[in-house]
Each structure stands twice: as structure tokens, then as C-alpha cells.
């Protein structure tokens, strides 16, 4: 196809250079022009060997359409990501929840310690054989409480990984910033759908799960609220 196009351009150029109205026109030049034209037509008639077939063109076309669809889908998926939500809400919330797990396990472990240390302090008042068994059990509890340190370290690693994700999303956001802002406006008008694809419940805004200690109110406060009027 490129060859034919090049030939066509060449013929057009040479025709424009010919002074067809002149009686003293060079016949050799005209013959050469016609021969080139014929060569071009022959080339086109030769078909498959000379250029891409119709099937190849169709395949190429479908690949381009597929690529365009892929880009459109990726664009829609990126739009669904809502980077502001991820970096501003979801990731910090997950990090807070994980920190709360560490805090809760530490508190529970301290409670276990207090109870077991009290038992151990009483072991001196027990018969020797009983005391030995009690101390042995207490030791096993101490050893087992090491889980809090280990899980805490693992959770810290997860939090660090989440921060990496957050930074990557922020980098994406800075690259596609304006486009995301435009998509976000569109997103506001979309039907509210949860991350798991299910529609939001009417009381979705009240589904907060267990609260961190500093955010929670006590049972006494709850009782007071219920009993007040």
C-alpha cells in the first residue's frame, strides 16, 4: 500500500511538471510515465504478495478495536478506584484498625499477666508439688504471651505495605489529577454502591464496627443516654 501511495505521488508530481499544452512535449518522458502507471496497477493487481491481505487488515482492525476497549475499561476501573477515597479514607482507616488490634492485644495480654503474676505470687503458699506445677503452668502462659510481640510486628509490616500502596496511589493521582477530579464529579451522581458491589443499606452510615477506646463512649455513658428522658 505504501508503494502504491508513493508511486501515485510520484506520478502526480511528474504530471504537474509536464507542460501538456506544449507541442514539443518529450515522448520518452510520457512513455516512462505511462509505464510507471502500468507498473503501479500491476503491483496492485498482484494482491497478497505485494501487501497486507484483507484478512490481515481486518485482524489488525480488530486488534485496534480490542486495544481501544481495553483502554476504555482501564479508564473506567481507574475511575472506580476513587484515589481520594483510598488515600484519604480507606487506607488510614485500615491502618487505624490494625493499630487498634495491636492495642487491644496488648491490653488483653497485660490483663493475663496481672492474673498470672498474682497466681505465681501465691505459689509459695501452696504445697511444694502443687507449687511446682502451678509455676510450670505460669511459665507456659508467659511464653505464650509472646504472641503479642510477634503479631504486633507482623501487623506493623502490613501497615508499612499499606503505606507503600498509599504512596503509589498518590503518585497515580498526581499524574492523572485533573482527569480524576472531573471523574469524581461524575462519581458523585452515581448510585451508591459498597466496595463489595452490593447496594448500600439505609443505615450504612451507622455501620462503624468496634471503636477505638478514645472514640468510644463507656457503658455508663450509654446507660445515662438511655435513661435521660
Amino acid at each position: 500500500m505504501v508503494t502504491i501511495l508513493a508511486l501515485s505521488n510520484d506520478v502526480e508530481k511528474r504530471l504537474s511538471q509536464l507542460d501538456l499544452s506544449a507541442k514539443g512535449m518529450d515522448a520518452k518522458e510520457l512513455i516512462a510515465l505511462v509505464q510507471d502507471l502500468k507498473k503501479g496497477l500491476d503491483h496492485q493487481a498482484a494482491g497478497p504478495a505485494a501487501g497486507p491481505s484483507g484478512d490481515q487488515v481486518r485482524k489488525f482492525y480488530h486488534e485496534i478495536i480490542g486495544l481501544a476497549d481495553y483502554i476504555a475499561n482501564a479508564r473506567a476501573e481507574i475511575s472506580e478506584l476513587r484515589p481520594d477515597d483510598i488515600t484519604g479514607e480507606h487506607l488510614p482507616m485500615v491502618a487505624d484498625e490494625l493499630d487498634a488490634i495491636v492495642g487491644a492485644t496488648e491490653q488483653a495480654t497485660n490483663t493475663i499477666f496481672e492474673a498470672v503474676e498474682a497466681i505465681e505470687s501465691l505459689s509459695g503458699e501452696m504445697p511444694e508439688k502443687v507449687s511446682e506445677e502451678v509455676v510450670d503452668c505460669v511459665t507456659r502462659v508467659y511464653e505464650a504471651c509472646g504472641f503479642q510481640d510477634i503479631t504486633g510486628q507482623r501487623i506493623s509490616k502490613v501497615v508499612a505495605a499499606l503505606k507503600e500502596v498509599e504512596q503509589t496511589v498518590e503518585a497515580l493521582q498526581s499524574t492523572f489529577g485533573e482527569w480524576f477530579a472531573a471523574e469524581d464529579e461524575v462519581g458523585q451522581s452515581r448510585a451508591k454502591v459498597r466496595a463489595d458491589g452490593k447496594p448500600q443499606r439505609p443505615d450504612e452510615h451507622l455501620m462503624n464496627g468496634p471503636q477505638r477506646i478514645e472514640d468510644a463512649i463507656s457503658q455508663d455513658d450509654i446507660d445515662a443516654l438511655l435513661n435521660n428522658g
Binding site: E106, T109, N110, F113, E117, E120, V135, T139, Y142, E143, C145, G146, Q148, D149, G152
Partner: peptide, 17 residues
């Protein structure tokens, strides 16, 4: 030396034993 108070407590109690 440990940044987890739980672990400090475990080691201290085991040393005490």
C-alpha cells in the same frame, strides 16, 4: 531492651523465676 512492653514483661518474669 524491647519496644514491646509485653516482651519486657515476659523476659522480666522469666528472669525472676
Amino acid at each position: 531492651v524491647d519496644d514491646y512492653k509485653t516482651m519486657l514483661r515476659i523476659i522480666k518474669n522469666l528472669l525472676k523465676q
